[in-house]
Amino acid sequence: MNADPQAKVGQPVLKVDDLRTHIFLKRGTVQAVDGVSFHVNAGETLGLVGESGSGKSMTSLSILRLIPKPGARTVSGRIEIDGINVLDLDEDTMVRDVRGKLVSMISQDPMTSLNPVFSIGDQVGAAFRFHDLVRGRSAIRDAVVNVLQRVRIPSPERRLDDFPHQYSGGMRQRVVAAMAIACSPKLMIADEPTSNLDVTIQVQIIRLLREIQKETGVGLIFITHDMGVAANICDRVAVMYAGRIVEIGDVETIFDNPSHPYTQGLLDSIPHLGRRRERLYSIPGNPPDMQNPPSGCRFAARCPHVMDRCRSEYPPEATVAPGHMAACWLVGKNE
């Protein structure tokens, strides 16, 4: 378990293949995640970028098998964490051996992610208690102090019995991170962990996540709608639109050579300091209705380069360069 993390860097800890998670409503079916494939290597950070409703949170909840029931269901695909297809496992195994141990989550809002009526020690200790890793009250207490130290909470032994409302926002996010890393998972999903924090604290949390990654070699999925944050922390970026990944590649490639018009639009929407512009650019139009997604490219209605073919056929994943894929007819033109 505590083998040299460096040894595993580069090995995929997560492989997602053609994942489809749909939400079944009385009015119809929402294809929230519709054929998503990607992988995350050990020690690597993959950014999952997209606007709200693009399916990025649904993808991460599918990996944890925590999609809201009843209503949503993963209808097909494969999700391999450390070589195990979690879609084959029953709920008991997920609880006992997967969640917390193989994969864990750092959730969106530090202000609401901790249970207000239980002490910090109790909540962080739960990770150890329910995986039978540490037995006995004082041993769990020591383990909690240790993990709180790892997320740089000052004098944790004195703050163990405090409640979440006695912690500041940044400190709470550190506690959430401590819960997530307690059982040394192979994969961590950070769902917009910084979007509700002050900019200075955002930087601290991002720095902390990087340090944790360096120490443990954990693979990290960083979900954000903010291209700037993604550029800061990610090794690779996957851009999601309307339930699908439209472009994926190294962070430099995505920023220097965006090949999908949607990615280009997103990058143009970032405000730049010192660059004079009349108005901030925004992509015209709205994402499609995911109950009846268009049969062709889902971005066609908003795309500045739209062609006839785009409206009828969904573009295949075309390789721009090794490791850089974009689902756009413009890229595959020569085929």
């Binding site: 609880v95 006992r96 969640r99 864990s104 992610s113 249970n115 819960m179 059982c183």
Partner: peptide
């Protein structure tokens, strides 16, 4: 439906504990 319940589930707290301890105490 709250974030802290999802967080507890995400680190592997069993359903019965989530429901009868974590959630019920909040509804008390």
């Amino acid at each position: 439906d709250s974030d802290h319940v999802r967080m507890a589930r995400a680190i592997g707290v069993p359903n019965r504990v989530v429901v009868w301890k974590y959630a019920l105490r909040n509804a008390a």
